[in-house]
Design a protein around this nucleic acid. Structure first.
Lengths: 145, 145
DNA sequence: CCTGGATTTGTGTAGGTACACTTTTTCCGG
DNA sequence: CCGGAAAAAGTGTACCTACACAAATCCAGG
């Protein structure tokens, strides 16, 4: 048991979770702003891409792929379904659902891609040579922890 | 169309925002779980520490310090006030509010510190020598972007 | 056939996030 | 002194996040 003041200082100077959340907030604002003209948010945008990709055979599998709690994904998908961008139907395998983009979803995704690219380029330019290092660090956290 | 496929691949393999959000989600689940017995979440915990520290002279200044949108911070503070852990009153300087921990807030923070430390140690152990690098990367994103 | 465990999807509740817009207060130049 | 710019706090709406709990479906052993 050490001094509380010291521990609090340690939290301020070292907390991995605080730092990750701060970084996520900053980046989310940047990407959301860039995607604004398309009416999509970065979460919805990446979700559309993950659904189109189709390598996840169920909502549960997709949640794992996105390091997202399953029920969170369910709520996020609901928004996209109500917007007519994604459709879901029984896949025939177990109780799993099959997800796919609607025509409207494909169009919106197509329109959004350049806006994403602009944000991504701005971020990479800002970070310069440190971006590959940062990317690798983030992926290690995602995989490892 | 083929161009789009390539861009979508780029999003999956490279998006800074997606990676930051995934990392934040993973870490948040770990820290929230560790803090569970205290009834605090990691956001509330770090907010208590930031308030106790007292180097922010207003809610707006505190928001900047935490890379958080001002109105988000307002809502998060409201939860802590209703829980009786934080109190706010006019500071006398401009329209700014003065924030401070209640006795109850100090107690809860004291109880939570060891739980935070356990989570932090686990994460640092998992990342090993890469933790300093990851930390530095996150801080660069927070500052730079 | 059928039951019990494993897998998957769904709901209730609660908190975290932020944009657009508004309201309140202060401060300062004329 | 006064009127407007600047700064700070507050509200409406909508979406993101996740735990606890429940319901539906499938599959293997009896």
């Amino acid at each position: 048991m050490q001094d509380d003041e010291e521990l609090e200082e340690l939290v301020r100077e070292n907390c991995a979770c605080l730092r990750a959340r701060m970084a996520a907030r900053k980046l989310t604002r940047i990407y959301d702003k860039a995607l604004k003209p398309t009416g999509l948010r970065i979460t919805q945008f990446t979700l559309l891409i993950a659904v189109k990709d189709g390598r996840a055979k169920s909502v549960s599998a997709l949640a794992d792929l996105l390091a997202m709690e399953r029920t969170t994904l369910l709520r996020n998908l609901k928004v996209l379904e109500e917007a007519g961008l994604v459709s879901s139907e029984p896949s025939g395998e177990g109780r799993a659902l099959s997800l796919k983009l609607t025509a409207s979803g494909k169009t919106r995704l197509h329109e959004a891609l350049p806006h994403w690219q602009a944000a991504q380029r701005a971020v990479e330019a800002e970070l310069g040579d440190d971006w590959p290092v940062a990317k690798s660090s983030l992926e290690q956290i995602i995989r490892g922890v």
